[in-house]
Simulated assay, not measured.
Amino acid sequence: MLSLLLAFAAAPLDTPTVQVRVAPAQVWIEEGASQYLNFDFVVRNTGADTMDVTRIEVSVYDEAGGLQIRKLVNQNGPSPSVQTLAPMRSFAPGAEGLIFNPFFEFPREVRLARLKYDIELQPRGAESPASSVVSVTVEPRPYQPRTPLAMPVHGRVLVWDGHDFYSHHRRWDFAHPVLRENCITSNPGRYSYDFVPLGADDSLHTGDGTSHAQWHGWGAEVRAPAAGRVIAATGAEPDNGEFDISALCANELVMYGNYVVIDHGGGEMSVLAHLRQGSVTVRPGDDVRQGQAVARVGSSGSSLFPHLHYQLVTGVEHGAEGLPSYFPGIRVRRGSGWVAAPNGQTDTGDIIDARGPQ
Rank of each mutant, 00 (worst) to 15 (best):
P16N: 13
P16R: 11
P16D: 14
V18D: 00
V18P: 04
V18A: 01
Q19Y: 10
V20C: 00
V20L: 00
V20I: 12
R21L: 06
R21E: 14
R21Y: 04
V22H: 10
V22S: 14
A23Q: 08
P24F: 15
P24D: 13
P24W: 14
A25R: 11
Q26C: 04
Q26T: 15
V27E: 07
V27Y: 08
V27L: 05
V27F: 06
V27M: 06
V27W: 05
W28T: 15
W28R: 14
W28A: 14
W28Q: 15
E30H: 08
E30L: 09
G32A: 05
G32W: 02
G32S: 02
G32P: 11
A33T: 14
S34T: 14
S34I: 11
S34Y: 11
S34H: 14
Q35V: 04
Q35H: 09
Q35C: 06
Y36F: 06
Y36E: 02
Y36M: 00
Y36D: 05
L37A: 01
L37F: 02
L37T: 02
N38G: 04
N38W: 07
N38T: 12
N38F: 09
F39G: 14
F39P: 15
F39E: 12
F39M: 12
F41Q: 10
V42E: 06
V42F: 03
V42I: 07
V42C: 03
V42W: 02
V43K: 03
V43M: 04
V43L: 05
R44S: 11
R44M: 01
N45I: 00
N45S: 05
N45L: 00
T46L: 12
T46D: 15
G47R: 03
G47Q: 07
A48N: 13
D49V: 12
D49K: 09
T50I: 08
T50H: 02
M51S: 05
M51E: 09
D52C: 06
D52T: 09
V53P: 04
V53A: 00
V53S: 00
V53H: 01
T54W: 02
